[in-house]
Amino acid sequence: MARNRKNQSAAIRFGPALKAFLMCSGIVICCIGYVWQKQQIYELSRQMKSREVRVSLLREQNDKLRNQLGTMLMPQHLEERVRELKLGLVPPQPGQVWRLPEPQIVQSSPPREQQYAAEQTPGLATP
């Protein structure tokens, strides 16, 4: 029997509804995806900018600290500090430099089959 308004099946037709739902869902997902993507771009741009600003500030701070360290390492500054703190530091005179003759390197005996810690004689390690 043909289907018509008077004589139609009691069963609900899900096909078109599902199609419409899927289509709408697709559009909504696309829209949400687009907005999310834009939001991500905005958020990443913001993070990028803030990190750039931070890098720039750290760089400036680094430059200042480098300059400060350079000043503190200058010989005239160190001399002033030595005077201020009354440390009495002076460079040694050549007569105060003692030159130590380097001890002769002791040749170790050829290795035996077994060596025991108790038998080892104290000596200088060879390089």
Binding site: P92, P94, G95, Q96, V97, W98, R99, L100, P101, E102, P103, Q104
Partner: peptide, 30 residues
């Protein structure tokens, strides 16, 4: 390294060193 007199060597270590051996020196601050 000074090339005139005035270089000081620890006497004990100098004595312990074999006179025939070439002497390498390291520097210490007195």
């Amino acid at each position: 390294r000074p090339d005139k007199d005035g270089e000081q060597v620890f006497p004990q270590l100098a004595a312990a060193t074999d006179a025939d051996q070439p002497v390498k020196t390291i520097v210490a601050r007195a």
